[in-house]
């Protein structure tokens, strides 16, 4: 069974937010909310600077605190791709998962349930990439099976330096950022 993850090349990402807009239209994300977003991190003092731009979203962690804390099983690990998903009609809206996520990846949908990135499973099931990946003008995002040693994501992870977000939180995130 696959274990989906993403590899994002920060050297190429320009932070144009296309991934955010594509997610909004693809998934009817309610106005004023976002399932993915852009973080810009600047280090240094003028004029000696470094900047990393990242497209961020749910990390579909191997060790997902949001799933662990969910009292109803609404937040669960979907067998397909071992992705973290929310079943709206099992969610009671306790918001524990929002507090449990160190990445702030979740929000409360105006209809009351917890919502977040699904890795566009509906597209993936059709053999397509998630909307954010397939729209990216810089082609900096790569989606694939981390359990498949021959997958493009694994090839990239093997060939470049990378980091994940807040590894100290122990969540084992599955979005990898190439330096």
């Amino acid at each position: 069974m696959a274990r989906f993850g993403m590899v994002i090349d920060t050297a190429k990402c320009v932070g144009c937010m296309d991934c955010v807009v594509a997610c909004q239209t693809e998934n009817d994300v309610p106005h004023g909310h976002c399932r993915d977003w852009i973080v810009t991190e600047v280090r240094g003092t003028y004029p000696t600077l470094e900047m990393e731009i990242r497209s961020e979203r749910c990390n579909h962690c191997d060790n997902p605190p949001c799933v662990y804390c969910c009292p109803t099983g609404a937040s669960h690990v979907e067998p397909f791709g071992k992705t973290v998903q929310v079943t709206a009609n099992r969610c009671i809206g306790c918001k524990a998962c929002l507090a449990a996520c160190p990445y702030g990846a979740r929000f409360v949908h105006p209809e009351g349930y917890a919502d977040k990135c699904t890795f566009c499973l509906h597209r993936v099931k059709e053999g397509k990439d998630p909307a954010c990946v397939s729209v990216c003008p810089t082609r900096c995002m790569h989606f694939g099976d981390l359990d498949d040693p021959k997958s493009e994501v694994n090839r990239l992870l093997g060939s470049r330096k990378w980091h994940t977000l807040l590894p100290e939180a122990g969540t084992k995130p599955r979005i990898f950022y190439l330096d």
Binding site: T40, E41, V42, L98
Partner: peptide
């Protein structure tokens, strides 16, 4: 110096988590 900006703007999550009143 570390300058972090984010475009995320979800109610009750940004700029700071506040899901419980």
């Amino acid at each position: 110096m570390l300058e972090i900006t984010s475009t995320r703007h979800n109610p009750f999550v940004d700029p700071q988590l506040h899901v419980w009143g």
